[in-house]
Write a protein that binds this DNA or RNA. Structure first.
Lengths: 334, 334
DNA sequence: CTGTTTTACGTAACCGGTTACGTAAAATGC
DNA sequence: GCATTTTACGTAACCGGTTACGTAAAACAG
């Protein structure tokens, strides 16, 4: 039995309305009663129930974050950024680990709907139609983080196409001609079935007159493991590769790892570049060169956008952030 | 305006009580009305409010998880495990990033209290008295994950002392005599001011008649960065070290990274062993040998324990899990 | 065909807050 | 001094569910 506002009111000889007003700094009470009530609150060690408050206020000060993966550093760095701004604003965040699984995702959306969250962030998640349909039913501000969509949902992301183009071009300018790519899951990108990072890669090659062949790309998922198996398969298929463009840093880390175990020196024998520039990159051996997509900024921006929508109910602009090569030690000139 | 149970009741020509009974499978209604109500529910696309439900049921199906750090892989693996069992049970998890910060932690506890969470897990957090005091006020099941306490709070953890002993002994048996240790934050372990992992390290040395000197230990925090600065400082102080015992894998990764950049070959010139066996270890160059503390099991066990307490209100036993050396490539025989 | 038990509901109070509205007392104007 | 405005509250309805209790109808027993 914790105390309720009634207990406080009774003990202070006032009405619950007055207590409520004092709790919310709404004025309409004298200094004297305020002190009296505050004393009782302290004495009873009373804390108002957020649940009850949520019922009337229609605001739970809670947001949901859908992530495809909790073991990816990129994602947890996103989570970190989101949590940080949420906390500043006084909101809590519920993490939902969807594993990129459709049914699980929908179940989570339903759960969050029932919990009456104030807003929702989808991190690195392709917005399928069924998700979108559900979300409009929820009538809750949503923003996509590191994803974009043709549905009218605001997103903050990098220009994956451009960033991949830049990364590939960097490799080319270093003199590489035989460049393989290890990409994430094909099926993840239903929309338009063009994978931006893959397209950027291809375009950079063709713009520099480097012949391209589908066998230069290996598709896996997004994890480190996919980097290691990816490298093995790729090298098997086309042995004279001098550089690998990894679709993200986790894959890049996997490539580094596989290369080490295969006795292939990086960057002497093989150059590798990743994308995202997660914080682990600089601690790799060798430190992994990467295309930074300013994802720290991204997460905070997405969160701020969402809270802006929650608080003002205004439409909001999409946001595309810059990218930039962070040179470290995993690429050398050919 | 989303629909409420009243809308459903009205449209189906029954009372809200009946709808509620049907929603909760409580019996006391005919098949016919059940179908009728279910139809209306589907038609209106009604979802009951978890907030309202929480108010009467005094159960929010939400738990809180306090983590000191969201960028540590160990912690996110914990989070992963907890989220997984919570989801199975139908609970949501609110992440609270305390940054090991006392005031922030208390603020979070208060927030979780107001949110009326059903249970709480403190991951890798030393249970200070002030936290404990607050927690007893909350009257909510709590379990410590990868931490222990003298206060009567159930914990699930490894035996850090023993594990460190085992890890150090392993190094000794490989012929190392000049072993340095890089440890986490001294101040984190207020309780008894003995750091279990440090004590285990010292004890292993003395049991094997290896002279010990405080200068062999460097204290930092728990991050990769502390591993890199730690190694530099340590090597400066005592240059003839042949092995490093890292208090956790992140520090171990930092050591690997620093060694690489310093041109010190691991394991040829320097052996390093970490602790926790996070999933990144095996992808390092070289793959990092580590003392596994079965932390996957740990997280799930902690979560299960907490839910058991929530559901049955019974006392519950502490749990100390095994450890085991996972040999990889970062240690060689001297 | 009664009398009793069971079934299938409805009514209304309750969970713990917020708030629109009403009013007595205090403050202000003249 | 009285009329008017302002202040400081209290009352009660409401948010959206759950549930104890009551009861008419149905099922069953004999």
């Amino acid at each position: 039995m914790t105390y309720t506002i009634k207990d406080v009111a009774q003990k202070a000889n006032v009405s619950t309305a007055t207590v409520s007003r004092i709790l919310n700094d709404q004025g309409g009470y004298s200094e004297k009663t305020k002190r009296k009530v505050l004393n009782v609150i302290q004495e009873l060690d009373y804390y108002p129930s957020g649940v009850a408050r949520g019922l009337t206020n229609k605001r739970t000060d809670t947001i949901g974050v859908l992530v495809p993966n909790l073991t990816s550093s990129l994602i947890t760095e996103f989570l970190n950024g989101i949590e940080s701004v949420a906390h500043k604003i006084g909101s809590s965040v519920i993490v939902c680990h969807t594993e990129s699984h459709g049914v699980k995702t929908l179940k989570y959306l339903q759960l969050l709907h029932e919990k009456r969250i104030d807003g929702l962030i989808l991190a690195s998640t392709a917005l399928k139609k069924e998700y979108y349909d559900y979300i409009v039913k929820m009538r809750v501000p949503v923003v996509l983080l590191s994803a974009y969509s043709e549905f009218p949902v605001p997103y903050v992301t990098a220009d994956d196409y451009e960033a991949a183009y830049t990364g590939t071009k960097y490799l080319i300018q270093k003199g590489h001609k035989n460049i393989g790519m290890i990409s994430g899951n094909k099926e993840e990108w239903i929309a338009g079935n063009l994978i931006p990072r893959v397209e950027g890669f291809k375009r950079a090659l063709s713009d520099h007159n480097i012949p391209f062949n589908e066998s230069y790309i290996e598709y896996g998922k997004f994890s480190i493991d996919d980097g290691v198996t990816g490298l093995k398969i790729l090298l098997n298929r086309v042995p004279d590769l001098t550089a690998i463009f990894a679709e993200n840093d986790e894959i890049g880390m996997g490539v580094l790892s596989a290369a080490y175990n295969l006795g292939i020196k990086v960057p002497e024998k093989l150059s590798v570049i990743g994308m995202d520039d997660i914080s682990l990159c600089k601690f790799m051996s060798p430190p992994l060169t990467s295309v930074s997509l300013s994802h720290n900024e991204m997460a905070e921006k997405a969160a701020n956008l969402m809270f802006k929508m929650i608080n003002s109910d205004t439409e909001v602009n999409n946001c595309i952030l810059d990218h930039q090569i962070i040179e470290r030690k995993s690429v050398r000139s050919q």
